[in-house]
Amino acid sequence: MLSIRDLSKKWADFSLTNINLDVKEREYFTVLGPTGAGKTLMLELIAGFHRPDLGEIWINDKNVTDLPPEQRKVGFVYQDYSLFPHLNVEENVEFGLRLKKIPKSETDEKIRRIMNLLSLTHLSKRLPKTLSGGEQQKVALARAIVLDPDVLLLDEPLSALDTQTQERLRRELKDLHERSGITTIHVTHDHVEAILLGDRIGILSDGKLIQVGEPDEIFRKPKWEFVAKFVGVENIFSGKSELKKGLARIDIGNVLIEAVTQKEGKVKACIRPEDILLSKKPIKSSGRNMLQGKITEISDRGATVRLKVDVGRELVVIITKRSFLDMKLRIGSGIYASFKASSVHVI
């Protein structure tokens, strides 16, 4: 589908060296790397905003290396949304369609459908500056996908948003991708985002693509320190979800947890280490997961302590130094780990 071959480019302070990558049809591919790794440059090369120094880019078996951006059928969404500030929401969304010589009735129908899909209809006459970050991002998405691009490129699309909006939009992105099937490349410096969204992940560091693989593989067998740093930092599980009485029961392998979601079937569940409570005695309360386990690892981090708890699956927990000392925890101590069903993020 998208094929990048021996791509190299030096631009300003950024450089990419010998990038080779194949992204499959309908795939959601995330590129993970720190700031300055060349992630945006990579997307801009695919979009045709720059010409590579070396190498080729192929989309749908066609060499597009020398094509200008407008002939590539590539949608682009920047971190800061880059909405046209002088146009209202509707005019932004219809920008691309109006440039083509398509009958108005046809474009109107398309715009109506996409605005509906992303629940933007009520904002159609508003100017971008009057919208929240999340709304702006959805407009930017609508503007790109209304043209049915072959490839959708997302440059840190969630990182300017607050945590709650991030989570909501993350879900919407996933849904949108499932419905539209547009091949997507999403670059981010946030490993949770990369894991939750990506069918596969590529790790970009210092302009080199150093590892490509499925999330599990990348995080279980990291080839590089940048990835290794994240291993075990977050609790990310693949599982199967079943809905029961408004809550989801997710089997994450040996362990059953409850979560607030409407998702069924194959899911990924993520629990932040600081959302987990440790106690010597069980805490009974509804809407809470309570798991019994043993401490397997303790590492002191100054004001906080990071522990690994084996509850059937390994959980990473971060607690304050104070409560760690109060509870007199040791390796091997029996312990209860609890967390709210609403603290389980499901995608």
């Binding site: 979009a47 407008e70 682009f76 920008f95 691309g96 440039l99």
Partner: peptide
């Protein structure tokens, strides 16, 4: 912002 023009190009503008 030059990105606005880049986005416009990706949306099919010459």
């Amino acid at each position: 912002d030059p990105r606005l023009e880049k986005v416009a190009r990706s949306l099919g503008a010459t």
